[in-house]
Simulated scan of single mutants.
Amino acid sequence: MTLDLHELYRQLHQIPELALHEFKTHALLMKQINALASDVDFVEIKVPDQLPTAILVLLHGTKPRRTIGYRTDIDALPVTEDTGLPFASQHQGRMHACGHDIHMTVAMGVLAKFIKAQPTDNLLFFFQPAEESENGGKLAYEDDVFTGQWRPDEFYGLHDNPQLPAGAIGCRMGTLFAGTTEVDVHFTGTQGHAAYPQFANDMVVAASQFIGQVQTIVSRSVDPIEGGVITFGQFNAGTIRNVIAGEAELHGTIRGLTQKMIEHIDERLQAVANGIAASYNCQVDLHLNQGGYLPVENNPHLTERFIQYMQQNPDVNYIETEPAMTGEDFGYLLSKFPGTMFWLGIGDPKHQLHSSELVPNEAAIEPGISAITGWLQQRMTEKE
């Protein structure tokens, strides 16, 4: 079968689906995979009962010493597309605004290369649902998807980057993406009349004071070299102007480049919450949910080899990158398996990831496939 990668990309772009509901995407991917593997006896395909939009494709190697995993995410975002593309999203209010359509297309291209020429080592391709929410990588691991022959010895995956030139490969030693934690805070005091504040306990004041004190965590409790972010994007309180609010809610996020830093910020947040509760004689309930969004900490040994290969390959435009405060649930899988995540440039510097106007340059597809295929072939020659 001849695989038209650009047509596949455009088809995927038109059918974006949210986490754990990637049914049309799953069907299109399965159609392509089955066609590629129709006359091949070294390919096995698995759809986990417990995660029915996921797909695992195992290519048995000719002389396997290891099983190398390659992961791509398949879900989209609740964003209304505003690109004007002739192949724009057909699903209202949903878009591949994070470029997972590029991710899938590149993965399919790499898969096609190794189906055409059987690999030496075993290769496991994991088409993962629910990266943007619902912790798809963590769900797969906890549901024992990676057992027996389906368990990789190491894992690789990419994320597209609109700020890098189309087709460039970016990476770094250490942390590539921050870990993230969702923060929900509920304040309970006493509602009352605006004219009689002495008989009420105002939670707008308590929550505001909490926000102010939280700002000192990063500025005074975090090593500035390591960095961290705490952002509250939602503040809900009150019902009318002349009633003192007896309840308030805050919703925000923590970002940190190491798990140790995230846990430190968690502890400081709880201490501030306890202090506000005591100072304002109110109840403060703090809920922290990290799920599978751990920092993407690249394995030193494998990443050093990966970078050396990309630097020495004259056909690769390799760029050393800084860590990013964006989150990625591949961090969970890298906490369980050694591996490396890297960037693929898609050359749209005017727009950020998650933008309704993001338009990846399709010229990134073939160089991405070539660089990844070359690295995997190189890795299969290494004994360690």
Rank of each mutant, 00 (worst) to 15 (best):
T2W: 07
D4Y: 05
L8R: 03
L8C: 06
Y9L: 10
K24N: 14
A27D: 15
K31D: 12
L36N: 00
D41S: 13
V47D: 14
D49F: 15
A54R: 03
L59K: 01
T62G: 11
P64V: 10
P64N: 11
G69C: 07
E81Q: 12
G84L: 15
A88P: 01
H91R: 13
M95A: 12
M95T: 04
I102R: 00
V106P: 00
V110K: 00
V110T: 07
F114I: 04
K116I: 01
N122P: 08
L123I: 12
F125L: 03
G137C: 08
G137E: 05
F146I: 09
W150R: 07
E154M: 12
E154Y: 06
F155L: 14
G157P: 02
L158V: 07
H159Q: 11
N161K: 08
A166E: 05
G170N: 04
C171G: 10
R172S: 09
T181W: 01
D184M: 11
F187I: 08
A195C: 13
V204M: 10
F210V: 05
G212L: 15
S219E: 12
T231P: 05
G238T: 08
R241F: 09
R241N: 13
G246L: 07
H264A: 11
D266E: 15
E267A: 15
N274V: 10
G275T: 08
I276Y: 02
N281E: 14
Q283H: 11
L286T: 10
G291V: 07
G291T: 04
V296Q: 05
V296H: 02
N299K: 05
M310P: 01
P314G: 12
P314F: 10
N317T: 14
Y318W: 11
T321E: 11
T321C: 15
P323N: 14
L334C: 09
K336Q: 13
F337K: 04
M341C: 10
W343D: 03
H351M: 10
H354K: 06
A364I: 03
G368P: 01
I372L: 01
Q377K: 13
T381V: 11
